[in-house]
Design a protein around this nucleic acid. Structure first.
Lengths: 121, 121
DNA sequence: CTTACACTGAACCATATGGTTCAGTGTATG
DNA sequence: CATACACTGAACCATATGGTTCAGTGTAAG
C-alpha cells in the first residue's frame, strides 16, 4: 500500500468505479460490518465480497481486523483528499477553459440543463 | 451515453483510474489536440490513444469532432459535478464517523501522517 | 494523379476484474 | 467433543482493459 500519488489515484478511482464498492463504503459509513454482513446486504458470496474488500483495503479506503472468526471492516485511513483535489483542479481548469469561449460554455450549459430554451446559434 | 447516475459514476471513475487518461484531460485543459498529438505526447500508438479517447468520450469527459482527416479532441460537457459531490459526501461521512470515536481518529491521523512522510518523493 | 498522412477497424495478446464453486482452516458454542 | 459458522485460498469462468500490429479508408498537398 506504499505507492506514489499517481498509483494511489489509480487505485482509489478504480476502487470507486464499482457500484458495489461505493455501496460498501456508504454502508461502512453507517456501521462497521463483517464480511458476511456485507455479502448478505449486497447479495453475493462471501468470497466475492472478500475480493471487493481486498480492493478497498488495497486502496486504503477500508481497514479490517480479525476478531475471533469474524473479520471486522470499517472505513480506512484515506479520506480521498487527493482525489477531491484532483477533481477540483479539473473543474477549475474546465471552467477556465470555457470562460475563454463564452458562446460555447453557454451552449453546453443549456444542453446539460436541457431546459428547453431555444438555441441562438 | 444516456445512463443513470450509478452507471455514470462507474464510467467516470473508471475513466479517471488510468494515469494516461488523467494526463489527456490535463492536456486538453491546456489545448485542444488531435489524436496523433496525444498519441505522440503519451508515447503510444494512434490506435491505443484512440481507445483512451473512446473511454473518455463514453464517460462524457471528452468531445471530438472530425475536421478533414484530423479528429479534434476537447474537454467534454461533463464537469464531474456528481463525482465531486460523491467524494464530498464521503468525506463528510468519514469525518462524522470518526468524530464519534476520538481516540480512533487520533490514532488513524497519526498513522496517515507517518505513512505520508515515508511516502514523500 | 500520386503520395503521404490521420484516422479507423479488426484481430490478437496478456493481464485484470468480478463473479462463482469447492475444499479447507480456525473459532465459538451446545 | 461435535457441530456450525466465518472466513480463506485455489481454481475456474466470462468478460473487460490496455496495449499492439496490420490492413484498410478518406483527405490534403504536391
Amino acid at each position: 500500500m506504499v505507492q506514489c500519488m499517481t498509483a494511489r489515484l489509480d487505485a482509489s478511482f478504480a476502487a470507486l468505479s464499482d457500484a458495489t464498492r461505493r455501496g460498501v463504503l456508504e454502508q461502512l459509513g453507517r456501521a462497521d460490518s463483517s464480511i458476511s454482513d456485507l455479502a448478505g446486504k449486497f447479495r453475493m458470496t462471501l468470497t466475492g465480497m472478500k475480493k471487493h474488500i481486498g480492493v478497498l483495503e488495497e486502496a486504503g479506503l477500508v481497514a479490517t481486523e480479525k476478531v475471533g472468526r469474524v473479520r471486522l471492516c470499517r472505513l480506512g485511513p484515506r479520506r480521498l483528499a487527493e482525489e477531491t483535489a484532483w477533481l477540483e483542479a479539473y473543474r477549475r481548469h474546465w471552467a477556465a477553459r470555457f470562460d475563454a469561449l463564452d458562446s460555447v460554455i453557454e451552449d453546453l450549459q443549456q444542453k446539460e440543463k436541457a431546459h428547453g430554451r431555444k438555441r441562438q446559434k
